[in-house]
Design a protein around this nucleic acid. Structure first.
Lengths: 207, 207
DNA sequence: GTCTATAGCCGGATAGAC
DNA sequence: GTCTATCCGGCTATAGAC
């Protein structure tokens, strides 16, 4: 029986799709979805734009695959793992923010698309609607755990802590894109977490 | 000597430009700058797209005029007037947020363009760079006045209060555009101001 | 001041050779 | 799997009649 899984061609296809997804992520992060062209993506990979449409049915599908791909590979939208204990949650948030700083492309991609996709016809409109709902729920669960451990400041509700942290983060990223020298994302998030919780946050460890 | 200032035609031109600016603001708020077309703007006014270019040199100029126009007519980016006293500043922030809720078009326009214009080639890139710097300075001055009056919570710096309030506001607007039912902009801002200051904020008055 | 007509470009997408 | 060639559409912008 002939082997059905020929490694050669399949591996080549997979590698090409990897290249296309990476290039598309960069282009969409730079120009957004609508203004980002298949030709610019193709040029980065060194292929013709029609070849992209051989691998992905159309531009909209390509964007969806980029987002799925980033979701799978990045930690950017996961709430801090609570396994280490409620007291470590704020530090985990800050580690996440520091990790994102090292891969600014993903941050810019999400920040740009989050705004662009606010209109119903945008191909990632539903994606961001669901994503925000999910992340809010994850953040709320994390802060609720802290509340149960008595680590939130009096009067601070987990829902407020979650929403304010997430929205502050997004807003900081927008300003950071315009003036990265003027905005200290990690430092400002630390300040917010110190306001929300009673946990001591060492700048050496977390910033 | 014949009158140089003929009121009729000039008034007509001014009125037409008003219509174009208003329609352009709506279209740019819905689709952003790049994806918003002159044709869609023209259709809303009931004229041909070439007529727009008779009144405004090109599309980029039109966007700049829209932003200048909104700056002039809206209160949306002005820091709360401190004349009433430092203790009234938080309430003034919330009044501003409530006023913005009644004209969502402007909020959406600015939120969308702020993200889209992050790339250097965008026609409103410099506008938003300067705008953010100015608003940060205005907010900082307002919170510094509160600090001088002893109205900030211990450990809260005016710069942090300003940046966190502004960034939180922007981030809330992004999520509000995706899910207006889930996001309470005024209520969340009130929570933040209660965290930053020692001023009592009555929900009846402010929200 | 507004229109029609059109230029000129670039976008996404398809067909078919290799 | 990748390319060339091409279609079709929408876009900004210009030219010129009225």
């Amino acid at each position: 029986m002939a082997s059905v899984t020929k490694r050669g061609p399949y591996a080549k296809t997979a590698a090409r799709q990897r290249e296309i997804l990476d290039a598309a992520g960069e282009v969409f992060a730079t120009h957004g979805y609508r203004a980002g062209s298949l030709k610019e993506i193709a040029d980065r990979v060194g292929i013709d734009s029609s070849t992209i449409l051989h691998h992905f049915a159309n531009k909209s599908v390509l964007l969806q695959k980029v987002l799925e791909d980033r979701d799978t590979r990045s930690l950017g939208d996961a709430a801090p793992d609570a396994a280490a204990g409620a007291a470590d949650i704020p530090a985990a948030f800050l580690r996440l923010a520091r990790a994102n700083e090292r891969i600014p492309g993903i941050v810019v991609l999400y920040t740009l698309l989050a705004a662009e996709s606010a209109t119903p016809e945008h191909p990632s409109n539903e994606y961001f609607f669901l994503r925000y709902a999910r992340v809010r729920a994850e953040f709320t669960a994390a802060f609720r755990e802290m509340a149960d451990a008595g680590l939130l400041r009096p009067g601070v509700e987990p829902e407020f802590a979650a929403l304010s942290t997430l929205a502050l983060w997004d807003g900081l990223q927008v300003q950071w894109m315009h003036d990265s020298d003027a905005i200290d994302i990690v430092g400002t998030l630390r300040g917010q977490l110190e306001l929300l919780t009673t946990v001591e946050l060492d700048e050496e460890e977390t910033g």
